[in-house]
């Protein structure tokens, strides 16, 4: 039996435990820290699944910057989720039904690690050979990211740029602008 599969199964079950405790907690700081731990274990899983670039990004972005942003935003928000008695029957039922359907469908998915599954037959071999012969870069992920799928990455950069500008616009401080407007009005008078 494959040792990688066992490590994977262990890590993914650990993630399930974290998600379960996320369901129970009402304290906001606990939620944020648990989310950070969840991302870190996801990064470990990406390493065992051979996705080193993704693991690197997840550890730096998901577990690092994302947690800092949550903590920075938390300073303005209530510390505790309010305890309300509201019926969660319908959301829970719909999630369970949807999950059951997905698990039923998972019997048709190819087994993990099978080299003959459809995803490995098209495009990927071309990219691996092309990265060596045409582009001459050992890291296939970089060559796909920047060259073969340059359009996609351009779009992603524009999305990040737009999100940054939107946050800057939403969270700008109004008071300074009011002062400037007052000064302008006085000058004009």
């Amino acid at each position: 039996m494959n040792i990688e599969l066992i490590i994977n199964a262990f890590l993914v079950t650990l993630m399930l435990g974290i998600a379960m405790s996320l369901l129970r907690t009402r304290s906001v700081i606990f939620t944020v820290i648990l989310t950070s731990a969840y991302s870190l274990i996801a990064a470990l899983m990406f390493i065992t699944l051979d996705a080193v670039d993704v693991a690197f990004t997840e550890a730096a972005v998901g577990a690092g910057i994302s947690t800092i942003l949550f903590l920075a935003a938390m300073a303005y928000l209530p510390r505790e989720e309010e305890k309300r008695i509201n019926s969660q029957l319908i959301p829970a039922l719909s999630c369970i039904v949807l999950g059951a359907i997905l698990i039923w469908c998972s019997f048709d998915l190819p087994e993990i690690g099978l080299a003959s599954s459809p995803i490995h037959l098209h495009l990927a071999p071309d990219y691996i050979i092309g990265s060596k012969n045409d582009i001459g870069i050992p890291n296939v992920v970089t060559s796909i990211l920047a060259s073969y799928r340059g359009y996609d990455t351009f779009g992603e950069v524009i999305v990040i740029f737009t999100a940054g500008i939107a946050v800057l616009t939403l969270l700008q401080n109004v008071k300074k602008d009011k002062k400037k407007i007052k000064k302008k009005v006085i000058k004009n008078v």
Binding site: I68, A72, I137, V157, A163, Q172
Partner: peptide, 25 residues
Amino acid sequence: GILIIEFGVGLTVCNVMIALFNSFS
């Protein structure tokens, strides 16, 4: 080409993250 556009991506991501933190705090 890859070197230049990766530099562009790095510049944007770095400054967006700093701008996000600054505007939140």
